[in-house]
Amino acid sequence: MTEALLTVRDLWKEFDGIQAVRGFELDLYPGEVVGLIGPNGAGKSTVVNLLSGFHRPSRGRITFAGHDISQARPDRIAQLGLVRTFQHIRLFSELTVRQNVEVAAAPRLQISTIDVALRTRRYRREVERWRQEVDELLEASGLMAIQDRPAGVLPYGDQRRVEIIRALATQPRALLLDEPAAGMNESEAAALSDFLEWAQGRYGLSLVLIEHHLDVVERLCQRVIVMDQGAIIVSGTPEEVTQHPEVIRAYLGEAA
């Protein structure tokens, strides 16, 4: 069996005496798509914040691609290839679509301030490579037509796509998507599923997908983890999980 890309063991997070995450565990294998569902306040977003370095765990160990990232900074974690998106889209709204993607591709450039000031040959070569990478990504994702529009004025669905493409520009190995279909209707959510399926297949990504749209989860995920009140209550295939009485009570029951 191949080794897990992301391993989480006994992860706990406490805020002011409230146990937001209690003993979360995860093994994410290369190319695998895992859904994370549960009612509001179950601790799903906190898990994403912990895995991406935006929160420090109170206890537990997170390993990604052989590195212990339990205490690492967000930018370091992203550079290792574990990249998150936000529940509320956070694009650079005054920059264009293209510039948003370029920012994400910039940290991998091998240039120094001296190269920038002197416009050395290495600088020109790296910038050329940078532009080509961004070109390819915009072309492949169909965003080329809107590349020069300010990201802040785009319709919601396009902003979501830009945010995901921006994450892809870091050349990640795994993405943590925090409710990418939030606020979307059925057909928009289906279009987003197509897009995620395409991106996942094309770049061979592992995904952790927090989602309330169960049709999106059932379509994309091989495995689903259900959380309630900070703890995992059940995990399994989408079919198993949606049949589980405790899930129906805690999650689906509440929604109905």
Binding site: S52, F54, R73, P74, D75, A78, Q79, V83, R84, T85, F86, R90, L91, F92, S93, E94, L95, Q99, N100, E102, V103, A104, A106, P107, R108, L109, I111, T113, V116, A117, R119, Y123, V127, W130, R166, A167, A169, T170
Partner: peptide, 26 residues
């Protein structure tokens, strides 16, 4: 030159939202 470079673009991005910038490795 600095402002027009990838560094400058990253700097402008951190002005807009430094956490979003960090989330993509800046």
């Amino acid at each position: 030159r600095f402002v027009d470079s990838p560094f400058g673009l990253s700097l402008i991005a951190t002005r807009g939202d430094d956490q979003a910038a960090a989330s993509i490795g800046t």
